[in-house]
C-alpha cells in the first residue's frame, strides 16, 4: 500500500479482498466548463505538484499546448471553437485527464497485481513500481487517458492527487484554478453544486446544460458541468455514453474462468485417460516379421491399399 491511510476498494489482478476497514466518503472533482477561461494554471500546478517536466513542444497554431496527454502531462486543456445557430462564437475549453471511473476499465484490464488500485474514496491510482508496461490499461480505458512512458515503460495518468487527498488537501489543479471552475469535495456535494449551476445555466439560455457523470462506467469521480450536455462530443470528443469495450469485457470477464477451467480439465482428463486406458503398445514379436500374424491382444494392422 502506497498510502497507508487510504483503503483500497479494488486492486488489479487480485482475487482476494484488498485492505478495507475504513468507510471514507466518496470524493469527486467537478469541472465547470462554463467557468473555464483556458489559463492552464491547472496544467502548471499539476506539473509542479507531481514534479513533472514534459518536453517543451512547438506551437501548432492552436492554444493546445501540449497537444495531447503524455506520460509527463497528466492533464491538458483542449480548445475547440464552435459557431452557434445564431452565428455567435462559442469557445469550448475542456480540461482533459483521467475521469476516475467507478468501474475503471484500466484496472479491469491490468494483469499486474497491485499496479492499479481504486481507493475506497473513489480515486483510481497507478502504482508504477508494479506496472509491467504491457499497455493493457490503454485498451481498457474508454476515455483514451493512460500513456506509456518510452523512458521507463510504465503507464501514467492523473492520480487525482491521491497523496494530497490522503492528508486532507484538495488536488493541485483545484487549488490553482483562478475562476473556481474546478471544485473538489464529496461526490454527493459536487453533484449538489452541479445541480445548482446547471439550473443557473438553463436560466441563462443553455437549455441542454447538464452534469456529465456517465453511468456506463458506473459514474465518474471527475465530472463536468457542460453547457451542452446533450452533445458532449462538442467538447473535443468527450464520449456520449462511454463504456468499457465489449471486447475487453469478454476478455477480462467470462474468458478468464472458462479458459483456465478448460486448460485445467483437459490436463486432468488427459492424465486420467492414460491412467485408466494404459499405453498403446506394439507387440514386437507378433508384428515384427513381414506379414506375420498378429498375436492375441495385438491389433491387426489393416492391409488394404491406399
Amino acid at each position: 500500500m502506497a498510502l497507508q491511510s487510504l483503503d483500497i476498494e479494488r486492486r488489479s489482478a487480485t482475487t482476494v479482498p484488498p485492505p478495507g476497514v475504513r468507510t471514507p466518503a466518496q470524493v469527486a472533482k467537478l469541472i465547470d466548463i462554463s467557468k473555464c477561461i483556458g489559463c492552464k494554471a491547472c496544467q502548471a500546478a499539476c506539473l509542479e505538484w507531481n514534479d513533472l517536466r514534459d518536453e517543451v513542444g512547438v506551437c501548432h497554431g492552436t492554444y493546445d499546448n501540449p497537444t495531447d496527454l503524455s506520460a509527463k502531462s497528466w492533464t491538458v486543456m483542449r480548445f475547440h471553437e464552435a459557431q452557434t445557430a445564431d452565428g455567435r462564437l462559442e469557445w469550448h475549453i475542456r480540461k482533459d485527464g483521467c475521469m476516475h471511473c467507478a468501474d475503471p476499465g484500466c484496472l479491469k484490464a491490468c494483469p499486474s497485481p497491485g499496479a492499479i488500485v481504486q481507493y475506497a474514496n473513489g480515486i483510481v491510482d497507478f502504482h508504477s513500481e508494479h506496472c509491467i508496461g504491457c499497455g493493457y490499461c490503454l485498451m481498457g480505458c474508454p476515455f483514451h487517458i493512460p500513456r506509456l512512458s518510452q523512458e521507463d515503460h510504465r503507464a501514467y495518468k492523473c492520480t487525482l492527487c491521491s497523496d494530497r487527498v490522503a492528508v486532507g488537501l484538495e488536488p493541485a489543479c483545484v487549488k490553482s484554478c483562478p475562476t473556481g471552475c474546478i471544485g473538489f469535495g464529496s461526490k454527493e456535494d459536487m453533484v449538489h453544486v452541479a445541480a445548482g449551476r446547471v439550473a443557473e445555466l438553463k436560466e441563462r439560455g443553455f437549455a441542454h446544460a447538464g452534469l456529465y457523470d456517465p453511468q456506463g462506467v458506473g459514474g465518474t469521480h471527475v465530472m463536468y458541468v457542460l453547457p451542452h450536455a446533450d452533445q458532449p462530443e462538442l467538447y473535443s470528443g468527450l464520449p456520449k455514453d462511454p463504456t468499457i469495450s465489449p471486447w475487453v469485457q469478454l476478455w477480462k470477464g467470462i474468458a478468464k474462468p472458462i479458459g483456465l477451467a478448460a486448460i485445467g480439465l483437459a490436463a486432468l482428463g488427459g492424465f486420467l485417460f492414460y491412467v485408466k486406458s494404459g499405453p498403446e503398445e506394439v507387440h514386437e514379436e507378433s508384428e515384427a516379421g513381414p506379414g506375420g500374424p498378429a498375436g492375441p491382444g495385438g491389433a491387426q494392422p489393416p492391409t488394404g491399399g491406399r
Partner: peptide, 19 residues
C-alpha cells in the same frame, strides 16, 4: 506488442487482437 508496434494500431483493433 509494447513498446514497438502497439501504438501504430487503433485501440479498437488492439482490443480485438488481445482477445
Amino acid at each position: 506488442w509494447e513498446p514497438y508496434f502497439a501504438d501504430r494500431f487503433p485501440v479498437d483493433l488492439r482490443r480485438i487482437a488481445v482477445l
